[in-house]
């Protein structure tokens, strides 16, 4: 799922400063699951913004809505934005882009979109795929070095891992390559670590402009 985090409230208040009638739109898919922008969080943020604006003597009118997926035109379609000065989207960046394309009013991001990840434990989300467009997981025991190694190293660990097997960067993340090493060893596939991985083709990653995917056979 896409993991996002709510923007700091003061940044949001700053974005909303010039408006007094705004629609908050939550998204009931990824960001609901990661507890950043579902219907519940939309309500919490709206309540907090109203409270802050009341306190500042500049009340704001906020209506709340949540749609199934902000990344789909068909789900956006029924949403009415007439009479609002702006929309604050609690979708991921994709949702913000889509809403901004759809409506002729400013669409503001309520979230900082983070990464594709999984739940490590309830309340803890971790990044596990970079979407690099050139998967190497078959060589690394299913542990992605592109995103789980802070340096995206492809040929083994640097010299920085701690005795606890953590990354030198101090983020508390485990060293991906120690994990890969242990996994491959368990799988009896350590020889795939001894083969040198050639330099990666980063043109398949996001660095070559927006990526698209087309399947001609299913196009309408």
């Amino acid at each position: 799922m896409i993991v996002a985090d709510q923007k700091p409230i003061n940044e949001i208040l700053g974005m909303l400063e010039r408006y007094d009638k705004v629609l908050f739109v939550g998204c009931q898919t990824c960001v609901a699951v990661c507890m950043a922008g579902g219907e519940k969080e939309t309500g919490v943020l709206a309540s907090l913004v109203r409270l802050a604006r009341q306190k500042a003597g500049q009340p704001i009118e906020i209506d709340e809505a949540a749609i199934q997926r902000q990344c789909e035109e068909e789900f956006i379609e029924p949403l009415e934005a007439d009479g609002y000065q702006a929309i604050l989207s609690l979708g991921c960046g994709v949702g913000v882009n889509k809403l901004a394309d759809h409506f002729g009013i400013p669409v503001l991001p309520g979230l900082n979109t983070g990464f594709m990840g999984h739940i490590e434990e309830h309340g803890v989300w971790a990044e596990t795929c970079a979407g690099c467009g050139d998967c190497v997981l078959h060589r690394t025991g299913g542990i992605c070095p592109v995103v789980r190694c802070a340096k995206s190293l492809m040929n083994g660990p640097c010299g920085g891992y701690t005795d606890d097997g953590l990354c030198e960067s101090g983020t508390g993340a485990p060293c991906a390559w120690i994990a890969i090493y242990k996994r491959l060893k368990e799988l009896g596939l350590l020889e795939s670590m001894t083969e040198t991985s050639p330099p990666k083709d980063w043109s398949k990653d996001r660095f070559s402009g927006p990526r698209t995917r087309v399947r001609e056979d299913v196009r309408l």
Binding site: P8, I9, N10, L48, L51, K55
Partner: peptide, 8 residues
């Protein structure tokens, strides 16, 4: 935490 973020 939320309310203290907005100065309450």
């Amino acid at each position: 935490q939320l309310i203290s973020n907005i100065g309450l």
